[in-house]
C-alpha cells in the first residue's frame, strides 16, 4: 500500500510533471499539491503537467484537488494541463457530474508538452532524455521565445 501512495514531481526542460499516485490517501493528494506549488515557485516553469494516468479512482475530493491545483498554477503564472485520464475514470467522472470543466486536458504527455510549446523534432540525432516512453523523435527543442536552443544539456535552462 505504501508503494503506491507517494507522489512525484519531476522536471522536463522547463515543464514540471506531477505524477499522481494510483491509490493515494487524501493526505498524499494534499502533499502533492503542496510539492507542485513549492517547485513552481523554485523553478518558475512555463507549465505543469498533472499526470493522472495511474489514477484508477477519481472521486469528488480528488477531482477538486486537481481542479484547485490547476487553478493555483495558473494564478502563479503557469499553465496547467491534465493528462492520462483512463476511460473508466472519465465515464465515472462524467456520471458523477464533475468533468474538470475549467481544466485544460491533453491526450498524452507528448501532446501536453507540445501544447506548452516544447517542440519535439526529429533532427539532430541526439536522444532527448527525460521525456516519456512515447517520445519517438530524436531531439527536443524549446521555442520559449522563438529561439531554438538545441538539445538541452541542463533541464530548465531555457529561461
Amino acid at each position: 500500500m505504501r508503494t503506491t501512495d507517494t507522489a512525484a514531481v519531476t522536471q522536463v526542460y522547463d515543464v514540471l510533471i506531477a505524477a499522481f499516485p494510483g491509490r493515494p490517501t487524501d493526505q498524499a493528494v494534499d502533499d502533492l499539491q503542496q510539492d507542485v506549488l513549492a517547485q513552481m515557485e523554485e523553478t518558475n516553469p512555463r507549465g505543469v503537467i498533472l499526470d493522472i494516468s495511474e489514477v484508477t479512482t477519481l472521486d469528488s475530493f480528488f477531482a477538486r484537488v486537481i481542479s484547485e491545483t490547476a487553478g493555483m498554477v495558473e494564478l502563479m503564472g503557469g499553465e496547467a494541463i491534465v493528462v492520462g485520464m483512463r476511460p473508466s475514470v472519465a465515464i465515472t467522472a462524467a456520471e458523477l457530474g464533475f468533468g474538470l470543466d475549467a481544466v485544460e486536458t491533453a491526450r498524452s504527455t507528448d501532446h501536453a508538452l507540445s501544447m506548452l510549446g516544447v517542440r519535439v523534432e526529429d533532427a539532430d540525432g541526439e536522444k532527448a532524455e527525460g521525456t516519456n516512453d512515447e517520445a519517438t523523435t530524436d531531439s527536443t527543442k524549446l521555442d520559449a521565445d522563438g529561439t531554438p536552443t538545441g538539445p538541452a544539456s541542463s533541464p530548465g535552462g531555457g529561461r
Binding site: R23, D26, T56, T57
Partner: peptide
Amino acid sequence: EDDILLARQEARAVAEEIGFSTTDVTRIVT
C-alpha cells in the same frame, strides 16, 4: 484516511472477483 483506502481496496478486490467490468469496478470503488 488509511481506512478509506483499505475499504476501496477491499471493494475493488471483491468487485473484480464477482466479475464486474473495469468501468463498473471504477463506479463501485468511486
